[in-house]
Design a protein around this nucleic acid. Structure first.
Lengths: 157, 157
DNA sequence: AACCGTAATTAGAATAATTCCAACTTCAAG
DNA sequence: CTTGAAGTTGGAATTATTCTAATTACGGTT
């Protein structure tokens, strides 16, 4: 697991990661740090395979299985959301705020769409008696007009 | 393609099917009629495989490939919606009204949730300039309380 | 610093849903 | 009838993901 030159995670992100892992009884490892960092540094909703390729350049001897394991762990810990469009491979998105997703028909690219708290309330209000939602996924699919379509990453942060 | 005893489709449904197919340059065939009928008669969001098994009992020598083809055709024609939860196999749902889906954590069962027009408007209003949605999928995931949870099929019709 | 036990990682095999393909059949129109 | 396009077929191929069994790393304890 020789790291070639592992990019250091900003302290805030590192703490977030460490605590989220700890609260789920998991250790902070170099791989988890690396992969979480990769997701944060290029927020374009990569697939597991893309994460693998990107991470590989920082750590040889990283296996695809580890990437899957790690992404799963991050999802469990609530640090990352899994984004499933149609029957495309699952994409991953470092969480932070509640949001929906929008996929551009033409490019396949996925964008984050902020969801105001009020809208989320409204959505949950749509459920009949007896249904308790624990999660909610909202997917749009359509076109972006070239003029206004945002750049590669959604929120710099 | 010997039909053993193909259930006849109600005239209304048959017309709907025929017209939707015609408007997309497709023929009405026995298989398409059968499979559409299967979806209508048991609206529990079956997977392709389940549709295959159910249809098999009415038509021997039906192939799984045809089921996939036919379901795809029905989706193209707007008669059926594909429902994708997590990375489970795609389920199919005969359309009619705009609605969301709710999956029960415990049973895995999927329910239709009516979406009032006003809510849909609100949702589309959430999109920033430059995003034009052509479709919208809303997925809930959670628990149903046994008391109030609905029976097998969502809307008798 | 060596030891232990558990957690993490690994490579590769296995799985499962879906798609592809090339041959065959059906059917409507001429 | 023939003909050709559309529909169907079984099986092979693809692909994302999960599983497995073996190895390695690591924190806590002497």
């Amino acid at each position: 697991m020789k790291a070639i030159r592992q990019p250091r995670l900003p302290a805030a992100a590192r703490n977030l990661l460490e605590e989220a892992l700890a609260s789920h009884g998991q250790r902070l490892t170099r791989h988890r740090e690396l992969i979480f960092g990769m997701l944060l540094s290029q927020r374009d909703h990569p697939t597991a395979d893309e994460v693998f390729l990107r991470s590989r350049s920082h750590c040889d001897s990283l296996s695809l299985a580890t990437v899957y394991n790690t992404l799963e762990t991050l999802v469990q810990c609530g640090l990352v959301r899994a984004v499933n469009y149609e029957r495309e491979p699952t994409r991953f998105c470092p969480n932070l705020s509640e949001h929906a997703h929008f996929q551009d028909k033409r490019t396949g690219r996925v964008y984050d769409i902020d969801l105001p708290e009020t809208v989320i309330e409204q959505l949950k209000a749509v459920l009949p008696e007896g249904f308790q939602a624990e999660s909610l996924e909202l997917y749009f699919h359509g076109r972006t007009s070239p003029k206004t379509s945002p750049a590669e990453s959604n929120h710099a942060h």
